[in-house]
Computed example of a mutant assay.
Amino acid sequence: MKEAIIHGMILAFGLILPLGVQNIFVFNQGALHPRFRSALPVIVTAAICDTLLIAAAVGGVSLVILSLDWLTPVIYSAGMVFLFIMGWKIWSAAPAEGEAKRLSLKGQVGYALSVSLLNPHALMDTVGVIGTNSLQYGGAERWAFAAATAGVSWIWFLGLAAAGRLLGKADSSGKGIRLLNKASAVLIWGIAVYMGMQLRESL
């Protein structure tokens, strides 16, 4: 049991630490909102989505998906389009000086759902990595492994939004947030291009 928990935590940190569109969105919302609790809808939605994806992968969905050879190119193709659109939205949402574009509760939840459930890297990591790694465990150990990976997601998103809030407090002019949004958009476009290269290699 202990080995499964440690394995799950290490694996989750390895997958979640690289900066991706979901992490960028959570951090940005933490930075833009004047109070930490205002970013909680994003944190909770992203964490719940990760938990559900992990539970589905560990529960056996990964075996079904990995058996469908045609599905990976479809996921990556849709993911490229999604990332290019998200990159543009983040780029164009960079606030003018003295302003901060904050999403409503509905907007936060909607965006968090999209970056969590329509992000092909998140889907492939969950299904292809966490799901397959869980197969070496059985019964309670497998679900302890799943709980450990999900727990890391919750802690990470809370910490990420808190770090964003610290930046927001330190950057009263908004210049840092504008720069962050521009850099985030470029990074997301870079991920989309890399995904296209992976797609071409797989065909």
Rank of each mutant, 00 (worst) to 15 (best):
Y137E: 06
Q108D: 11
A161Q: 04
N133F: 13
Y137D: 05
S77M: 13
L123N: 13
A140W: 10
V61G: 02
L103P: 10
A94Y: 04
L105Y: 12
S77C: 12
L135G: 02
A148P: 10
M80W: 10
S77T: 15
S77D: 09
W88V: 14
G98C: 12
F84K: 08
G87W: 01
A122Q: 11
G138E: 11
G151S: 07
N119C: 14
D69G: 15
A144V: 00
G151F: 07
M124I: 15
L68Q: 12
G110F: 08
A140R: 11
A100I: 10
S67R: 12
V129N: 07
K106N: 05
A94Q: 06
W88Q: 11
V74Y: 04
A96V: 13
D125Q: 14
K89P: 07
W70A: 12
L105M: 13
D69S: 14
A94P: 08
A122M: 13
G87M: 05
A78L: 15
A96W: 10
G79Y: 08
A78F: 14
F145M: 00
V109W: 02
Q108E: 13
V64C: 01
S153L: 04
V64K: 04
L68R: 11
V115Y: 06
V74R: 04
A112T: 09
L71N: 03
L135S: 09
K89W: 10
L103C: 03
A94F: 06
I130N: 05
A100F: 10
G151K: 03
L83R: 09
T126C: 10
T126P: 04
H121P: 12
A148G: 06
S153N: 01
A147E: 02
G139N: 01
G159P: 08
S62N: 05
G139Y: 00
I155R: 04
V129W: 03
G98Y: 02
S153A: 13
W91L: 15
G139K: 02
A147K: 03
L66W: 00
W143K: 02
V152Y: 01
P95Y: 01
D69V: 13
E141H: 09
L71S: 09
V74H: 03
E141L: 04
L71C: 07
L158K: 02
W156H: 06
Q108A: 10
L118S: 07
W156Q: 07
H121I: 15
V127Q: 04
E99R: 14
L83D: 09
